[in-house]
Design a binder for these strands. Structure first.
Lengths: 208, 208
DNA sequence: ACTAGATTGAACCAATGAGTTCAAAACAGT
DNA sequence: ACTGTTTTGAACTCATTGGTTCAATCTAGT
């Protein structure tokens, strides 16, 4: 078989370990030997599964972006069946998104994207296909439905989605010191409530 | 004298060239020889002014952050003497801020901060002293004055400033593909108008 | 013109790390 | 037990690069 089902699938362990080490050290500073150690595997095994350091990096990032996207899409779920009081649903979704956005792996992924996007132009695809774009699209869909149902007043759902995300994640950059400091759940709730408040000021209907 | 006023101050040329190369290659990939070339200077001269690569990097980043901060503070100036129609002043300021935020050097600075902040913990000071924090503070001051004057309704000026910046710069991350693509002035204006609209929905008074 | 300090180019040293080779060992399926 | 594939560890090659040394050259100020 092409994929070695022998052992407990080393490949996945390698990709996981790779992302961990890349997240900790950055691409250039991370050495393959350390990745092998982290994955509990010998160095030649790494090169046996992935051709070279660059493709190793690419695959690790791809995988991380995939799972991050799925998590964030799942966080939107409550919007499919919203509470009569839209505010509580928005705050719920907002809080989930913030929790994911401040997650360690998430922060590392964003840091690595920012730092290596010039050296790895293919990461642009990750951004559009598994990144903010997709999430914005899904959120815009939900907001459009809510507008049709008369619970919202978003003439341009894409823009509304964009601003909702901006109000949520914008304040994080400064407060988390660019993702280096974890911030408490209380502060997260505070940000969420503020974001939802101004969002509803701009796009809410009478039933707020 | 301590500072060599001989020649046309090589030191500045070195710092500028260093930032240029670091911006293009990243910290690890940038080699000192190339920095020397970019600055039109010999390699030992670089080590003559800065002890090693790390301090060279630190000083270059520090300088870049300084100028970026000054530019952005200057962009707030119209708020000191606002137009009777507050909307036009806010759109003016917003547009200036966006222009600065999407500037090449600015994007590079942000990218480098994100990528190396784990290896260079002292950059946290840059973020707080010359980064978003200072800008937020200055903006909050202006908004507080406007609230006192009855032109605005911002009970928590810090939060209002935070959200104003978020509405402006949040959409950029996705639209500029994490700072790799320049976006046209028209699109910038569109973002600004949308941001100011929702900001005034949330914090504006009757005279909008 | 003279001197002291800065600059230059080139060569050099040492460390690091990517990627390979290879023989020995471990494993999976039969 | 047998066989073919995979893994392992260790050693090895080779290119890059940070940082230094040094003698020759340049510049500024006197």
């Amino acid at each position: 078989m092409a994929s070695s089902r022998g052992r407990i699938d080393k490949r996945q362990a390698i990709l996981d370990g790779a992302f961990t080490v890349f997240a900790r050290q950055g691409y250039a500073q991370a050495c393959v030997q350390e990745i092998a150690n982290e994955a509990g595997v010998a160095k030649p095994t790494v090169y046996n599964h992935l051709n070279d350091k660059a493709t190793l990096f690419r695959h690790a990032m791809q995988a991380a972006a995939q799972t991050a996207l799925h998590q964030r899409l799942a966080a939107l779920e409550p919007l499919a069946d919203p509470d009569p009081d839209l505010r509580v649903t928005l705050e719920d979704v907002g809080h989930r998104l913030l929790r994911l956005h401040t997650d360690d792996r998430s922060c590392a992924l964003r840091r690595l994207l920012y730092s290596e996007i010039t050296q790895f132009p293919d990461f642009l695809d990750i951004v559009t296909e598994s990144g903010p774009h997709r999430l914005n699209q899904a959120l815009a869909d939900r907001l459009a439905r809510l507008t049709l149902a008369g619970h919202l007043r978003a003439t341009d759902p894409d823009q509304a989605a964009e601003q909702f995300m901006a109000l949520l994640t914008g304040p994080l950059e400064a407060r988390t010191r660019m993702g280096t400091r974890q911030i408490g759940d209380a502060e997260l709730h505070e940000i969420t409530r503020a974001a939802v408040r101004t969002f509803l000021h701009a796009f809410g209907t009478a039933d707020a």
